[in-house]
Structures are given as structure tokens and as C-alpha cells.
């Protein structure tokens, strides 16, 4: 296959909020704004950012669990955002999702075997024997004993449940797995087991991952490339090694500096970044990071910076660190809250 496995173009999601019943216009929350990236077969793209940055919304948009306001999601060149129900059903086989909380994402009344074979039975009917064989095979793939086939989720540990969630995602042999904070709820020792499993699966089966996480240690470990999001937008997208060695966007820099390091001999020099993530209901004008940014200049308050490609293959949206050589003609952002007509 030529070209990327997944191509996301100008993906945007606005949520209306408040009552619009008697008003002419509804204010919107810009959860995801103009997000574009690609993922190659067998690659891991990590999306990092803090709460409210839109990373989980991106995951749901990719799976088309929610409809985008604008933009396209292409898998092998086909835009799944435009597909009708039946066609979408067929394309869904290609991508599966693993959730953060293995407690609430598994049906407590189904056995392990039923949980992991259910996706396949959405597409084809299986004989009892086939189902048994498939379940045993999937359990083995995720490092669980086939004897677990009759267990209920409540009879499994947190790590085993997450393995089950991964087995379910593997059942349809997807080319892409979207993992939304898949190891965040796990203890460190269990987290290591699950990360190893994901790395093994990628190597053996060539699965690509979109791995959404707030944990930079985990991201640095498994990512090939990293997209950093802030208030709905990508502010930096770079090869993992380059990003961690030399973050360019001041927010990426602040994020990396803030992550606690398990090394007591390290002396922390820099003061943590001030302030908090602003509300997406009323985002700052210009660059959304400017109220917290130590480098902010006048232009940052007025004009949102475009993503500018850098020499080492990364893109950065920052007027100071990555000034655009040709300023694209763009109307200044007029209001903080935008309105869509009803």
C-alpha cells in the first residue's frame, strides 16, 4: 500500500453548549480545531496533552464514534467520515479501540471468551468450535491462559482485564489500534507488562497505534512520532527522539520540564510553568498558550500561529520559535466565542 495508513485532514469538532432554544445563535466549544496528521502502517503516533486539550475527542472522531464538524479521516485513502452505515461497518474492522478503564469497558455479564469473540461475530457467524479456538488463540496472544475463557471480568485483575480489552481489539486483526490512556489506570509493574505486550504485537503483526496519553515517560518509550495538543490544536508534531531531545514549542518544553523524574540527584532548575489551562469555552485570543508563555510577544496575543515545518521534519505553531517565513493571509481572530447559526 502506498501512502499513509491513516490520514487526518483538518479535523474539527465543535460542541454547541448552553440553551439555543430562543437564541439565534449557539456558542460553541472548540474541542478539536483543524487537526491534521498521518500514521504509517506499523507506526506508533502518540498524542499528548493535558485534560481538555482534545486528545480523547480526536480518538472518538477517528473511530467515528462522534461525527466531525469538519475535516476528513482517510484510511488507505478512503474517507470514512463520509461513509454510510453499511460501508462504515466494513471499514471499522480495520481499526479498533482500547480504553482507559478496563472495568467499565467490559460487559460484566459476559465471559472472557464471549467478550473477545463478540467483535468477530458482528461480521461472521462462528461455530462453537471455531469460537473456542479463536478465544483460546486470542487469550494466548495477550499472554493469558486459555483456561481463563470462562471467567467473568469481576474475577480478573486490572492487568488481566486490560489484556482482555486488547484481545478484543485484536480479534478482527485490525491494522490500527487507537489506545486512549490504555495504561494510565494501571500500576507501574502491570503497566510494564501491557506496554511490552503492545510492543510485541506491533512487531509481530505490524499494527499501527494511535496512543493517547498524558504520561510523557510512557510516550517517550513507545512513540515513533509525537503530537502535542493544547486547547484543541496541535502545537508541535515531531519524531519522538527529536521532540524529547529538543522541544521547540514553549508548551512542549513546559510539559517535559514538569514531568517528575525518578532520579533524586537531578536538580530541578526551571520553575514550573505558571497558570492553568484556560477554558475552551472562552479561549485566549491569538496563540492559546500566550497567557502562560514566558516568550509571548504582542503578535501572540493577536494572531494564532500556523504550523510551520522545520528542517528536522517537525511542525511547530509558535511565532517566536518557529516564525513563518511567508505569513499566510489570515483574518485576525475577532471574537473569543464564535457562533454558528441555527
Amino acid at each position: 500500500m502506498n501512502g499513509p495508513l491513516l490520514k487526518v485532514e483538518n479535523l474539527t469538532k465543535h460542541y454547541p453548549f448552553g440553551s439555543g432554544l430562543f437564541k439565534k445563535a449557539i456558542p460553541v466549544i472548540r474541542a478539536v480545531e483543524d487537526v491534521s496528521f498521518t500514521v504509517d502502517a506499523g507506526e506508533t503516533l502518540c498524542i499528548v496533552g493535558e485534560s481538555g486539550c482534545g486528545k480523547s475527542t480526536v480518538a472518538r472522531l477517528l473511530m467515528r464514534l462522534i461525527e466531525p464538524t469538519a475535516g476528513r479521516v482517510l484510511i488507505d485513502g478512503t474517507d470514512i467520515a463520509g461513509l454510510k452505515k453499511d460501508a462504515l461497518h466494513a471499514w471499522r474492522r480495520r481499526m479498533q479501540m482500547v480504553f482507559q478503564d478496563p472495568y467499565s469497558s467490559l460487559n460484566p455479564r459476559l465471559t472472557a471468551g464471549q467478550i473477545i469473540t463478540e467483535p468477530v461475530e458482528n461480521y461472521e457467524s462462528l461455530s462453537r468450535k471455531q469460537r473456542q479456538a479463536l478465544a483460546a488463540d486470542l487469550l494466548r496472544k495477550v499472554g493469558m491462559s486459555p483456561e481463563m475463557i470462562h471467567r467473568l471480568p469481576s474475577e480478573l485483575s486490572g492487568g488481566q482485564r486490560q489484556r482482555l480489552g486488547i484481545a478484543r481489539a485484536l480479534a478482527l486483526q485490525p491494522s490500527l489500534i487507537i489506545a486512549d490512556e490504555a495504561v494510565s489506570a494501571l500500576d507501574v509493574s502491570v503497566q510494564a507488562q501491557i506496554l511490552n505486550l503492545l510492543l510485541d504485537l506491533q512487531q509481530q503483526m505490524g499494527i499501527a497505534f494511535v496512543f493517547i496519553s498524558h504520561d510523557l515517560g510512557v510516550v517517550e518509550h513507545i512513540a515513533h512520532r509525537v503530537a502535542v495538543m493544547y486547547l484543541g490544536r496541535i502545537v508541535e508534531l515531531a519524531p519522538s527522539q527529536a521532540l524529547f531531545a529538543k522541544p521547540v514549542h514553549p508548551y512542549t518544553e513546559a510539559l517535559i520540564a514538569a514531568a517528575p523524574v525518578p532520579d533524586p540527584t537531578r536538580v530541578r532548575l526551571e520553575a514550573p510553568v505558571e497558570g492553568e489551562v484556560p477554558s475552551p469555552i472562552n479561549p485566549p485570543s491569538g496563540c492559546a498558550f500566550h497567557p502562560r508563555c514566558p516568550l509571548a510577544v504582542e503578535r501572540c496575543r493577536v494572531e494564532a500561529p500556523p504550523l510551520v515545518p522545520m528542517a528536522d521534519g517537525r511542525v511547530v505553531a509558535c511565532h517566536v520559535r518557529a516564525p513563518a517565513t511567508v505569513i499566510p493571509p489570515k483574518p485576525p481572530v475577532a471574537a473569543n466565542v464564535s457562533f454558528i447559526g441555527t
Binding site: S157, S189, Q191, A192, L199, E220, H221, S240, Q241, P262
Partner: peptide, 24 residues
């Protein structure tokens, strides 16, 4: 020791298998 080694650490290499604490 097992806890410390099972944490991701770029100094010991990316995308490699992490030493696990087996069992529960």
C-alpha cells in the same frame, strides 16, 4: 528494584521490552 526497572527510561533505550515483575 523491580519497580524501578519496570519504569520506562529513555537512557536504557526506547521501544525495548521493559523488565516485568511477573505475576500479581
Amino acid at each position: 528494584q523491580g519497580l524501578m526497572r519496570s519504569m520506562p527510561d529513555p537512557r536504557r533505550g526506547r521501544q525495548r521490552r521493559l523488565p516485568e515483575i511477573p505475576g500479581i
